[in-house]
């Protein structure tokens, strides 16, 4: 006689039934080269140095904002928000890795020279061994986080502009940049959605949440010109502001002399300290 019995340990984790054949997914990822196996030849008609410079700028924007967002770890208003911000930071870090690796492959001269025999890959050399003056990111992403409302405003403005740009870059003649952009579109759509929802919630919350939101938006808005003129992004942001019943801030654009604020150097000092202390380290 056979009786169907529940096997001990069969349902120890709620995820057992979900992961099926993807159980290896979180453990077997290869971190060595984000562009492994990809043809990184620069297509005819594209200037390799210009492409590298452009990818560096896009990569640095993602890297610096990723680091700022990671500073929220353990400090967000709620556990759920803590993880949400960390997820966005990790998406941007992934974009940064691909873009810095693409820049290095297109024009190896952009990569800082490290001691002979250093095991540091080009993307890490670019991230951890350049000084603030060599970074190409917009000042908007290097400013300190401010409060949660200001962080929401920055993610909203940044993700809206970057999404509009990446949708166009998905058709870029460089197949690598095009693929990076196409992947990023899905991520940025979520980032914009996350920030847009919080923007509306905070605007309609309490007097205090609205006051903080409007103050944060004003600080971010003064740097919006750094992201360039983009009619599509303008339309989306106008829609979010209208939905939230928030007026466009009346602020004068802040122009940063020398390309960066004092904040980037301090941020990099912390971000780069471990890698620089161990230039032959393997991670």
């Amino acid at each position: 006689m056979t009786i169907h019995t529940h096997q001990p340990g069969e349902h120890e984790s709620a995820y057992d039934g979900l992961l099926v054949n993807d159980a290896h997914w979180a453990f077997g990822t290869d971190f060595e080269d984000p562009l492994a196996g990809v043809d990184t030849t620069v297509p005819d008609g594209i200037d390799a140095a210009e492409l590298a410079s452009y990818c560096l700028a896009l990569g640095d924007d993602a890297l610096v904002l990723s680091h700022r967002l990671s500073e929220w770890c353990s400090r967000a208003p709620d556990l759920e928000e803590d993880i949400a911000l960390a997820n966005i930071a990790l998406d941007l870090l992934g974009q940064a890795r691909l873009l810095l690796a693409r820049a290095a492959a297109a024009d190896p001269s952009v990569v800082p020279t490290l001691p002979e025999g250093s095991p540091v890959p080009p993307e890490d050399a670019l991230a951890f061994f350049r000084d603030d003056r060599a970074f190409r990111n917009v000042p908007l992403v290097e400013l300190p986080n401010g409060d949660f409302a200001e962080t929401v405003c920055r993610v909203l403005v940044f993700a809206t502009h970057r999404l509009a740009l990446f949708e166009r870059l998905a058709a870029h003649p460089d197949a690598v940049l095009s693929a990076v952009a196409a992947k990023g579109v899905k991520e940025l759509t979520y980032h914009r959605d996350f920030a847009g929802r919080w923007f509306v919630v905070l605007a309609g919350g309490t007097e205090e949440s609205r006051r903080r939101l409007e103050a944060g938006l004003a600080r971010v808005w003064a740097h919006r010109h750094e992201l360039g003129v983009d009619a599509e992004a303008d339309g989306v942001l106008a829609h979010v502001l209208a939905t939230a019943g928030v007026a466009e801030p009346d602020v004068r654009p802040v122009v940063t002399d020398g390309g960066h604020t004092e904040h980037l150097g301090r941020m990099l000092a912390e971000m780069q300290s471990v890698a620089r202390a161990h230039p032959r380290g393997l991670w």
Binding site: A14, L18, D22, W25, A26, D78, I83, A84, F194, R197
Partner: peptide
């Protein structure tokens, strides 16, 4: 059923669930 979380409203609860419970491709 994978767990529980706090959220201000239903739609944010879906977003939070995405962030907290589907990070590893589940």
């Amino acid at each position: 059923h994978v767990g529980s979380l706090h959220a201000p409203d239903d739609q944010m609860a879906v977003r939070h669930a995405r962030d907290v419970y589907t990070r590893r491709n589940e």
